[in-house]
Amino acid sequence: MTYRTQFDSELDNLKLNLIRMSDLVIRNITDALHSFINMNSELAERIIKEDKLVNDFEYSIEKECMRIILREQPVAKDLRLITSVLKMITDLERIGDHAVDLSRLTVFMEKSEGNFNLPQIKLMIDVCEEMIRLALDSFVNKDINMAKEVIDKDDLVDDYFEEIKQLVVKAIKENNISADYSIYLMMAAKYLERIGDHAVNLAEWVIFSITGEHQ
C-alpha cells in the first residue's frame, strides 16, 4: 500500500506547474530570439508584456514549495525535488528576463541605423533554444545524460560568444559597424551567453534532484 497520496499529488502538481512555466519561458525566449533575428518589434512588445506572467509563475511556485515544506516536511528525494524546483524557477525567471532584454534590444535596433549580419548570432540562438528544451526534457524524463548534454553544449555557446566579440572588434576597427549597433550586438551576444549559463544551472539542478550531488 502506498501512503501520502495527497503529498504525491502535490508534488505532481508542482512538477506540472514548473513545466507550464518552462513552456511559457521557452515560448517567450524563442519568440524573442526570432523577433531579434527578424527585427520584429511588434512581437518584441508582446514578449515584454508577457514577462509578468513568468514572474507570477515564479511567485506562485515559490509559495507552493514553501507550503509543501511547511506542511509535509519532505526529506530525501522529495526534499531534493522541491529544492531543485525552487532553484530552477529562479533560472527560468532570469531566462525570461533575458527574453525581455533581447526584445528591448530588437525595438532599439530596428530604430537604429545600420545592418551587420553575423551568422554566429543565429547559431548561438539555436544552441540556446536547444539547451533550454533539453534541460526541461531531462527534468521531465529524469534523464541525467540529457542534462549532461546541456552542460557540454555550453562550451559551444561560449565559443560563439568569443567569435562574435572578435568579429565585432574587427568590424569596429574597419569602420564597418556603427557604435550603437556594435554595442547592441555585443549586448545580445552577452544575453545569449547568460541564457546558456542559466540552462546549465537548470541541468545541474535536474542532476541534483536525481543524484543528490550538485556540481
Binding site: 500500500m1 502506498t2 501512503y3 501520502r4 503529498f7 519532505p74 526529506v75 530525501a76 528525494k77 522529495d78 526534499l79 531534493r80 543524484t211 543528490g212 550531488e213
Partner: peptide, 19 residues
Amino acid sequence: IFSNPAKAKTEEYITGRFG
C-alpha cells in the same frame, strides 16, 4: 540518510511511502 539514502527501501520509509 535523510538527504540521499543509498537504498530505495530507506527512501520509501523516510519519505513516508510505507511503514
